[in-house]
Design a protein around this nucleic acid. Structure first.
Length: 281
DNA sequence: AGCCCTTTTCCTGATT
DNA sequence: CAATCAGGAAAAGGGC
């Protein structure tokens, strides 16, 4: 496959794009509108079911968009036209060929790294992470003028396989977290993230939580005791009750993670909660 | 060790 | 009356 990708075809394809085109310009749609694309409705399951080799250029961009969302990176800061190729092409081009295109090298490394770990990509095992040595190699091999946002780089260097899953499923990574801690919280240990993930995982939800208004982020606790028990299991706390859990939830009102809803057992995600929006997953 | 943040625990009082 | 909500206070626990 590698041989089939010639420099001329690669370059001619990429050159049709204006290097300065933004996401919006490239795809002729707004960030939100783009979510109407085929795979976007269930991008998590898509990424977890299709090997990176078979991602389209849109899938590549979706992945980047998702990570940018989670890292709170302005999508317009990235020239997505440089990613106007599918992962098959990208993964199979040579390093020197990639270097011929601005940012090509960047995505090249990301996808090569990703593909190396695809078998364990979705098993969420710590040991699937690239070693520190791998990450250091990645960092040193990237040219200083690669244009890679530092937070995104940190994100991928922390663990390409796990971080992508974390980005998509947990959505718990903020740019601030990437910078300030230099690592990613894959444990997803915050209560609101636990609740959010439960809402986003019908197979694990078992009717414990349900959306009242999906678009506005309003949800209902259907089985309060079951929710408390599940949270208690996660925290290894047998004495957890809904009374205590709800107190913790009420603390989120202060921080804007949740907003008050004047209904019993009903909560709403606030402006500081992320990863719950259907079009941001 | 101390600080900070999140969560837990307990509580009183109000509301449904 | 029970369940839930609201929020104060204190403490626990973990990360840095």
């Amino acid at each position: 496959m590698l041989e089939s990708v010639t420099q001329s075809t690669f370059l001619s394809d990429t050159m049709v794009c204006d290097p300065l085109m933004s996401w919006t310009e490239l795809f002729g749609t707004t960030e939100d509108d783009y979510t109407t694309c085929d795979h976007q409705k269930d991008s998590y399951s898509f990424w977890t079911s299709i090997h990176a080799d078979y991602w389209s250029k849109h899938n590549v961009c979706e992945l980047l968009q998702s990570c940018c969302d989670q890292c709170k990176i302005d999508l317009n800061c990235i020239s997505f036209s440089h990613f106007n190729i599918n992962s098959l092409w990208l993964c199979n081009m040579t390093h020197s060929l990639a270097a011929a295109v601005i940012c090509g090298e960047y995505l090249y490394f990301i996808l090569q790294n990703s593909r190396m770990h695809t078998l364990s990509f979705f098993t969420d095992e710590e040991e699937t992470k690239p070693s520190n040595k791998d990450c250091n190699n990645l960092l040193t091999e990237l040219p200083p003028d690669s244009g890679v946002p530092s937070s995104l780089l940190t994100l991928f260097c922390s663990s390409v396989p796990a971080c992508v899953k974390a980005c998509v499923r947990a959505g718990s990574i903020s740019g601030q977290e990437c910078h300030s801690h230099g690592r990613i919280n894959l444990q997803n240990s915050h209560l609101w993230e636990f609740v959010r993930d439960l809402l986003l995982s019908p197979e694990e939800n078992c009717g414990i939580l349900e959306w009242e208004d999906r678009e506005q982020g309003i949800f209902r606790v259907v089985k309060s005791e079951a929710l408390a028990k599940m949270w208690g299991q996660k925290k290894k706390n047998d004495s957890m009750t809904y009374e205590k859990l709800s107190r913790a939830l009420r603390y989120y009102y202060k921080t804007g993670i949740l907003e008050r809803v004047d209904k019993r057992l009903v909560y709403k995600f606030g402006k500081n909660a992320h990863g719950w929006q259907e079009n941001k997953i």
